[in-house]
């Protein structure tokens, strides 16, 4: 799930350097919702952040104590740990437009 790539757009909206994007996907077991979310997230990352993102999937059934840290309530939840600020997107990420807004990624033009 880890991919590291070169920078693509040097002058992004916030003069963001080509840093590694750290994303966490919180799920509870292998449900359809979580699988959908993972594939949706992966798709978006591939198209927008190819090569410079890292998705960590955390299964709260196995590690319930981790839910507290990122204030997880809703499942699935994606937390963008880096770059700052932290952003949170909840849902199965089927709504791409909202996902992009949530991740603060401009829709690919």
């Amino acid at each position: 799930m880890k991919t590291k790539t070169v920078r693509r757009r040097a002058s992004d909206s916030h003069r963001r350097p080509a840093k590694l994007w750290q994303l966490r996907l919180y799920v509870t077991g292998q449900t359809t919702k979580s699988q959908t979310a993972f594939s949706n997230l992966k798709k978006i990352c591939e198209s927008h952040l190819k090569g410079r993102y890292r998705i960590t999937v955390i299964d709260l059934v196995k590690q319930p104590q981790l839910a507290k840290g990122d204030q997880i309530l809703a499942i699935p939840t994606v937390v963008r740990k880096l770059p700052k600020p932290v952003r949170t997107i909840i849902g199965n990420l089927s709504d791409t437009a909202h996902l992009l807004v949530g991740l603060d990624l401009r829709p690919a033009d």
């Binding site: 319930p64 952003r87 990420l93």
Partner: peptide
């Protein structure tokens, strides 16, 4: 800080509570 995208449930709350 929260963006909604698609369906979700509150399983996280259940997990924490549990």
């Amino acid at each position: 800080e929260v963006q909604e995208s698609g369906e979700y449930d509150l399983e996280g709350l259940f997990v924490r509570l549990n």
